[in-house]
Amino acid sequence: MRLQELYKRNIYGVIGTLVFHILLFSAFLLADVDIKGNVQEESILIEFPELLNEPEEPELPETKEENSQEMQPHTPNDRTNIASNRLATENTTTSNEEFFDKDYMEELEAAKRLVSDVNKNLAKEIIDLSDIKMPVETTEGMDRDSIKNVIYAGESNIVYFLENRYHISLPVPVYLSQGGGTVTVEIVVNRQGRVIEAIPRANTNIRDKQIFAYAKEAASRTLFNADESSPEPQTGTIQYTFVAQ
């Protein structure tokens, strides 16, 4: 009777103890315990199959939408738009031409006239002064005291200043030019009486610039008397008064 009573009283404790020992024994079976009491866990390896290469997507053929759009015939609305665009272009061109007719065309014509004038000037025959013939005033057979440094040729005159020297041959260019005016030429003369340098002075009152060339050429052809006692070189001037023709 006592055993039954003890059994009934401790039945739950006994069952709990048995369950605890069963679980403990199961844990020992699942895990390896070394002598020191350390649990050795086995690593679990999971192998994955090699990834398959993704297949390349084939190139899709060109869509037929673009071709279909190109092959579509123009509708009446498209033709109307094309016609209006052409009309707008023509109107713009016409307005531009009208604008250029007033300003641009005037400048273009002025440029053409300028080019034409330049071409005419370039086409003019360049005068070779060495071929020009000039009247020459000489003192051959004259007494030195009767020789003057002023030579008159009608309404024109030539005046030179060269100390203690007189002219032997003096060209007269005063009727060669169409214009008129007075030109002074600075000269350099050697002891033999030859002019070795001639430089015309500027004169803004003279419009015909060819006068300066004639004066320089005439001064270069002038011959004075030889004088071994004169300065070497000797400087002076010759003044030419041209008469308009």
Rank of each mutant, 00 (worst) to 15 (best):
87 L>K: 09
220 S>F: 01
82 I>S: 04
126 I>D: 15
96 N>F: 02
241 T>Q: 05
133 K>F: 09
96 N>D: 00
172 V>W: 07
214 Y>I: 04
240 Y>V: 00
66 E>G: 02
21 H>T: 05
138 T>P: 01
215 A>K: 08
185 V>N: 13
117 D>P: 11
130 S>M: 08
224 F>S: 13
239 Q>R: 05
109 E>N: 15
32 D>V: 09
161 F>Y: 05
61 P>L: 15
125 E>R: 13
197 E>W: 04
95 S>H: 06
45 L>R: 15
38 N>K: 08
179 G>E: 07
66 E>P: 00
158 I>G: 14
226 A>G: 08
217 E>A: 06
2 R>W: 02
3 L>F: 11
241 T>W: 02
139 T>Q: 04
74 H>N: 04
195 V>S: 05
195 V>F: 03
59 E>L: 03
113 R>L: 01
130 S>L: 12
129 L>P: 02
118 V>D: 12
163 E>W: 10
105 M>Q: 15
71 M>D: 00
199 I>F: 08
205 N>S: 02
125 E>H: 15
128 D>Q: 11
184 T>E: 09
182 T>E: 15
220 S>A: 06
208 D>R: 13
47 E>K: 15
116 S>W: 02
126 I>W: 12
120 K>H: 10
131 D>G: 01
158 I>T: 12
129 L>W: 09
118 V>G: 12
59 E>C: 04
132 I>E: 14
216 K>W: 00
32 D>H: 12
159 V>Y: 09
140 E>D: 15
32 D>R: 13
142 M>P: 00
15 I>G: 12
234 Q>S: 01
28 F>Q: 04
243 V>D: 06
158 I>H: 10
202 A>V: 06
124 K>A: 14
140 E>M: 14
188 V>E: 15
15 I>W: 07
35 I>R: 06
231 P>Y: 10
213 A>V: 00
6 L>N: 07
46 I>C: 07
7 Y>I: 03
232 E>V: 07
221 R>Y: 01
230 S>E: 06
99 F>C: 12
31 A>N: 08
134 M>A: 06
169 S>Q: 10
74 H>P: 02
210 Q>Y: 01
48 F>I: 10
37 G>W: 03
153 A>C: 09
87 L>A: 10
205 N>C: 01
129 L>Y: 15
122 L>Y: 11
114 L>K: 15
143 D>W: 03
216 K>D: 04
116 S>A: 10
212 F>P: 10
49 P>G: 05
76 P>E: 12
87 L>M: 01
47 E>L: 05
57 E>L: 07
40 Q>C: 05
49 P>N: 04
178 Q>P: 11
74 H>S: 09
98 E>Y: 14
177 S>E: 13
43 S>V: 10
71 M>C: 04
73 P>H: 13
241 T>N: 11
72 Q>A: 03
36 K>I: 01
135 P>L: 15
148 K>T: 00
205 N>R: 04
149 N>L: 10
229 S>V: 01
201 R>V: 00
37 G>P: 08
65 E>G: 08
23 L>M: 07
64 K>D: 00
37 G>M: 12
123 A>D: 07
129 L>C: 05
132 I>W: 11
196 I>A: 06
74 H>E: 07
146 S>N: 11
155 E>C: 08
152 Y>T: 07
207 R>M: 06
28 F>G: 06
114 L>R: 13
139 T>A: 11
127 I>C: 09
170 L>R: 12
111 A>T: 00
58 P>W: 05
225 N>W: 01
162 L>Y: 03
198 A>L: 00
48 F>C: 09
82 I>G: 02
